[in-house]
Design a protein around this nucleic acid. Structure first.
Length: 271
DNA sequence: CGAGCAACCTGCATGC
DNA sequence: TGCATGCAGGTTGCTC
């Protein structure tokens, strides 16, 4: 499920339950994720306090005195808050249990996610260090974006999904942002006017911000729920709407493949 | 170096 | 009903 808005929604859902809490026990039922679960999560994390839950790109960062737990939800990962006495369901691979018996439980059927440990500072960690700007921050702006784009002759959709350029734009919102800004997903990145790229930057910010805002409404269900915020009933204009009429011009939406990922666009609205 | 794509997994919808 | 196939919200790291 996780695109950036889902990860941020997860962060907001778990933070009030675990910030300031002391870990009492960690249970790893399945250590084979995208990478093996770091052993420090079993050996070092117990007895430490979680000071803060942060997000960088689609990574959740749980800070302690001795380092940071880096969690990525991959394609199918989710976290929920439950009680340590509840029985784990299928594919619930990891429990972080706290001294007040709260349990943060990780479920991930496809196991593309990760639980990694970083001795502080986490900003130096291999996976974190190379990340581009946060889409919702000032550091993602046209003055930095435009010159970077001039070096790219890949399809614009691939470029906005490249975490070195900007983080957090996943497959769904890439299609949606390009529709909103009227840009054909296959258009060569360095062949787009600055004016249109200004619109693209705005579209990415608006779409992600709206999705996060709507995700907030699901937070009340975070405890003892699936913990899966889903798609927020967000109105998707093109994603998943192959052959259906464009909501603007009625032209059938097209589905193509770019860089092995399904891509949706309106051949009339997007050039 | 950039671009393309194989790989890591399970679940689910579809078609024969 | 059973089985094969294709597809799925991510990202690294390999090849060319």
């Amino acid at each position: 499920m996780p695109e950036l808005p889902e990860v941020e929604t997860t962060r907001r859902g778990i933070a009030p339950h675990i910030e300031g809490q002391q870990v009492s026990q960690v249970i790893v039922r399945q250590e084979k994720l995208r990478w093996p679960v770091s052993p420090e999560i079993s050996t070092l994390l117990p007895n430490l306090h979680i000071h803060q839950v942060r997000r960088r790109a689609k990574y959740l960062l749980l800070d302690t005195d001795k380092g940071t737990l880096i969690i990525h939800l991959g394609m199918s990962g989710s976290l929920r808050i439950t009680d340590a006495s509840t029985e784990p369901e299928k594919h619930e691979h990891i429990d972080i249990i706290f001294t007040n018996n709260t349990c943060m439980r990780y479920k991930d059927p496809r196991r593309f996610g990760s639980f990694l440990w970083s001795s502080s500072p986490v900003e130096k960690h291999k996976l974190i260090q190379q990340l581009g700007p946060e889409p919702l921050s000032e550091s993602f702006n046209i003055d930095d974006f435009y010159p970077k784009i001039q070096l790219k002759k890949a399809p614009i959709k691939s470029v906005i999904m490249d975490g070195h350029i900007v983080v957090g734009v996943g497959n769904i919102y890439a299609s949606e942002a390009l529709f909103q800004s009227g840009i054909h997903p296959k258009r060569t990145a360095n062949n787009i006017s600055k004016k249109r790229l200004v619109n693209l930057v705005s579209a990415i910010k608006e779409i992600l911000a709206l999705a996060i805002e709507q995700g907030g409404t699901t937070l009340k269900d975070f405890v003892n729920s699936s913990g899966n915020p889903g798609y927020f009933q967000q109105k998707l204009n093109v994603y998943g709407r192959a052959n259906k009429p464009c909501l603007v011009c009625d032209t059938p939406i097209k589905q193509i493949v770019i860089a092995q990922r399904s891509t949706f666009y309106c051949p009339h609205c997007q050039r």
